[in-house]
């Protein structure tokens, strides 16, 4: 999510993954033997409330502005209800709009739990219906609480969900840390064999322990990253906070085209964080 300079290596990893996944997808559903873990809910937001109001200020704060966020993104993030509001029927809606705003051509929103909630290890999950369109870049991700002290990428980053709007049937899970950013990010894609992520809700989750991070889509484990898999230092043993955003354009996703439909909304049914019992 942060400073992804090229994705060449990522793509190779993804290609290998896809070839293997294809055979699963077109035959029987793969049967996975997953580790049994029991969870205790530590934090959640179901986004209940009246339509048009802002999300709970005891749980979420905002990133505001159009600095490009290290990725040459085009949007201006605001906290206006037109960019981020409750739906009234239990969802949070983050909407990217094509409009002229303080020098930017697009507006959107990026909310985070920084300073309000963070946790080391556990299960972080959200049920989301993502937006679509070339140049649209929705994400649900975690950053190390110590980012202001040690800076990025030393703080660590766990991307539970990132999508490119021009590939609405594919989602990605990644980590970034020292030595594992830009071209060296550890990442993997998961493709739906039928259907798309923008037409239905899906559950995006990581289960994170002292020496592993497991990436799930719905109930399917599609990637496990362990300290021995990465070249850089394992910086994933401190509290992390959560971020939800819809970026428009950037190094990761490319730029919107005249055919990109606007506005584009990400619907979040809930966010839940668990700890091992």
């Amino acid at each position: 999510m942060y400073n992804t300079y090229t994705i060449h290596k990522k793509a190779i990893v993804l290609c290998i993954f896809f070839l293997s996944h294809t055979f699963f997808g077109c035959n029987q559903n793969p049967i996975q033997t997953l580790p049994e873990r029991s969870w205790v809910l530590m934090w959640s937001d179901n986004f209940d409330g009246k339509a048009g109001i802002s999300p709970d200020s005891t749980k979420w704060t905002y990133d505001i502005g159009n600095s490009g966020w290290g990725n040459s993104e085009l949007q201006y993030y605001t906290k206006r209800p037109s960019n981020v509001q409750l739906s009234g029927d239990g969802n949070l809606i983050i909407t990217a709009i094509k409009e002229s705003f303080s020098g930017a051509s697009y507006t959107s929103a990026r909310i985070k739990t920084k300073g309000l909630f963070s946790q080391t290890y556990g299960r972080f999950e959200a049920r989301i219906k993502t937006p679509t369109g070339p140049g649209i870049w929705p994400a649900f991700w975690l950053l190390g609480d110590n980012i202001d002290q040690v800076n990025w990428p030393m703080c660590g980053e766990i991307d539970i969900m990132e999508q490119r709007g021009q590939q609405s049937a594919i989602t990605h899970g990644s980590i970034h840390g020292p030595g594992n950013f830009g071209a060296n990010a550890i990442t993997k894609g998961y493709g739906l064999t039928s259907g798309r992520f923008d037409t239905d809700f899906h559950i995006y989750a990581v289960e994170w322990g002292e020496d592993y991070i497991d990436f799930y889509i719905d109930t399917y484990l599609y990637q496990r990253i362990k300290p021995e898999n990465i070249s850089g230092k394992w910086v994933f043993n401190t509290p992390f906070f959560m971020i939800l955003n819809v970026a428009v354009g950037g190094n990761y996703v490319g730029y919107p085209t005249s055919g990109t439909p606007f506005p584009q909304s990400m619907y979040i049914d809930y966010v839940k964080v668990y700890k091992h019992s």
Binding site: T6, I7, L14, F18, T22, G25, G191, G254
Partner: peptide, 28 residues
């Protein structure tokens, strides 16, 4: 250079996707 890398990776993606689609399509 960055742009070239991006483009080639992007094309690789398309090829892979097409393989997947065709594979599933025949079965349907």
């Amino acid at each position: 250079m960055k742009r070239i890398l991006y483009t080639s990776a992007h094309n690789a993606w398309l090829i892979i996707i097409i393989i997947i689609l065709n594979g599933c399509y025949d079965r349907n």
